[in-house]
Simulated assay, not measured.
Amino acid sequence: MAEVQIRRYEDDDEEDVKDVFTLGMSEHVPSSCLHVLKLPRTQMLLVCVFCALLASSKSLLLPILAVTLLLAAGRQGVSCMFSSYIQTSLHKDLNNIRQTYLETPNACFWVAESHGQVVGTVACLPAEQVNGCLELKRMSVKPSHRRQGIAKALCLTVTDFARERGYTAVVLYTSIVQTGAQKLYERVGFKKVREFVIPELVARITSFTLIEYRLDLQQSEN
């Protein structure tokens, strides 16, 4: 983590923060598409369509074209799901970082800066669904600056902040396709609490699962 400084967000960081967030979320589209392809019902659908069209048309061209179109439609659906989430986030808390995180009690937003460039972000708010806990949010590090300990340092910044304010635990939510993030959180000491599918239609169809993690601060001190 040489020459990387973690500091509180400043208003001039807004566009850089949005860029880091957008890049971080967009890169999960390919892995999400692979997740969908591995679902048994997806594979069954593709095989059934291929075999039905092959039997009826007696030609390979039509079933291959149909399967290709289904794959393209599936990728577009996943892309739209991520694009919708990105736009919602940009027009919600990321458009009002100061108000949401810096002017709210027991909340904060930090950036990791390297050579004057924002390369990572993390934030926290009092958890809405878990009493007495702080929620870690907006964790992202640019691909060019990963594996340098920045993400771990950002996590620890939040846990230290929570401990100083008397919170008993920190919770966070990440997706099933973010395997790198899961490994990081588990190395820091977070434990998996539950998995659940978000209610959006595309998410239900694709079994896009979120994972809730929790770090009990008293236990982490032992």
Results as ranks from 00 to 15, higher is better:
residue 3 E to T: 15
residue 3 E to K: 14
residue 5 Q to R: 13
residue 10 E to I: 06
residue 12 D to P: 07
residue 13 D to W: 00
residue 14 E to R: 14
residue 19 D to L: 15
residue 26 S to V: 08
residue 32 S to A: 01
residue 35 H to V: 05
residue 39 L to E: 14
residue 40 P to W: 06
residue 41 R to V: 04
residue 44 M to L: 13
residue 45 L to S: 08
residue 49 V to Y: 03
residue 52 A to E: 11
residue 54 L to M: 13
residue 55 A to E: 14
residue 56 S to I: 08
residue 57 S to K: 07
residue 57 S to R: 09
residue 58 K to E: 13
residue 58 K to P: 11
residue 66 A to N: 13
residue 67 V to A: 14
residue 67 V to C: 15
residue 69 L to N: 10
residue 72 A to L: 08
residue 74 G to K: 00
residue 75 R to E: 07
residue 75 R to F: 14
residue 76 Q to H: 13
residue 78 V to S: 02
residue 82 F to V: 12
residue 88 T to K: 09
residue 96 N to F: 03
residue 98 R to A: 11
residue 98 R to G: 08
residue 103 E to A: 06
residue 105 P to F: 03
residue 112 A to S: 12
residue 117 Q to G: 04
residue 117 Q to H: 07
residue 120 G to Y: 03
residue 122 V to Q: 01
residue 128 E to A: 09
residue 129 Q to W: 08
residue 130 V to T: 12
residue 130 V to L: 10
residue 131 N to M: 11
residue 136 L to W: 03
residue 139 M to W: 04
residue 141 V to M: 06
residue 143 P to D: 15
residue 145 H to Q: 12
residue 149 G to E: 05
residue 153 A to F: 04
residue 154 L to M: 09
residue 159 T to Y: 03
residue 159 T to M: 10
residue 161 F to V: 06
residue 163 R to Y: 05
residue 164 E to K: 03
residue 168 T to D: 15
residue 175 S to C: 11
residue 176 I to K: 03
residue 177 V to S: 04
residue 177 V to M: 04
residue 178 Q to T: 04
residue 180 G to R: 02
residue 181 A to W: 01
residue 182 Q to R: 15
residue 185 Y to H: 10
residue 192 K to F: 02
residue 194 R to G: 01
residue 195 E to Q: 10
residue 195 E to I: 02
residue 197 V to Y: 03
residue 203 A to P: 04
residue 204 R to E: 08
residue 213 Y to A: 01
residue 214 R to L: 06
residue 220 S to L: 11
